[in-house]
Design a protein around this nucleic acid. Structure first.
Lengths: 156, 156
DNA sequence: AGATTTATCTTCTCTGAAGAAGAGAATATG
DNA sequence: CATATTCTCTTCTTCAGAGAAGATAAATCT
């Protein structure tokens, strides 16, 4: 902990970083006239590809009812499409078919700034950073799943 | 961009990382029986120290009405306290005076996992990572402020 | 083969949070 | 001393999420 003098406030620095990321996520959703969850769901669909409402609900942390209405909103806005699943006629596949027009413009400042920061690192340093991003993504995903299953059962 | 073959999907990897961070933030708030905004505001107060409702509203991206009720909720839960400002009797200072009891327990899995990841890096590599965290935090904060001021004025 | 159970999605109603507009109190400025 | 500005709080309306209940299709069992 106290090996490097500049890292005594590492935890604080890290939390500030997470706070900034979350604030920006919220602000960009609002700039697209979307709720935070809506933009988040759209992001998941684009990253992971088409999926059923059930899976989308699991990934967003929503129950089935709100998930249907979330898809309704996205479909009405023209960002996703409902397609019947070919193998199972109970299922529906939610496909991303578009993005908010303002999204690129909204994300531009952050992309530009982060790009400029990353451009200042050497190839080896970038390897370290992206290695961390990859591992941390899995870590947070697992931690979030743990929280969802533990809901209310915090006492052993 | 295409210098390193393994980094062609850097953007994708990075977005997955941000998604995981946001999902975890949302899940942990729910695990504390708080709204995402409430936990976020509490986090800001702990990181930055006491501030007026106006500043808290600006930082959370809320307008004045919801900010008052946000503080009401936090005050009723015993997490913050309203103190009259000594220099200006219009103002109120919001002070953090506690945290949700479950917070440490909720954050434990993520902290442990991220700690384990960070423990695997050398001192030089950690310097790179925390240098990035620091710069990126400022970048996202600036980008978020830009979005808030540009709201609706996307066309030049 | 027919009936039952399971799974998936949707609909409905209720609670809670965010936005908009306005009021009241205190400070700063002319 | 009077006016304008700043800051917070209050009220009303709108929208998103939780939960229970219902409908349709697939899988399983007898």
């Amino acid at each position: 902990m106290s090996t490097t003098p500049g890292r005594s406030d590492a935890g604080l620095l890290y939390r500030r970083y997470l706070s900034a990321v979350m604030l920006h996520g919220h602000a960009s959703a609002k700039a697209c006239d979307l709720g935070a969850t809506d933009l988040y769901a759209l992001n998941i669909l684009e990253l992971t590809g088409p999926m059923t409402p059930g899976e989308l609900g699991t990934r967003t942390g929503l129950t089935t009812g709100p998930t249907t209405r979330l898809i309704d909103r996205l479909e009405q806005a023209g960002y996703v499409r409902r397609v019947p699943a070919p193998d199972d006629r109970r299922k529906v596949i939610v496909e991303p078919i578009g993005k908010p027009a303002e999204l690129d413009q909204v994300m531009a400042p952050a992309r530009q700034k982060v790009g400029a920061i990353l451009a200042g690192y050497s190839a080896e340093q970038l390897d370290v950073l992206f290695d961390y991003f990859d591992r941390a993504a899995h870590a947070y995903q697992e931690a979030a799943e743990l929280l969802r299953s533990d809901s209310g059962a915090v006492c052993p």
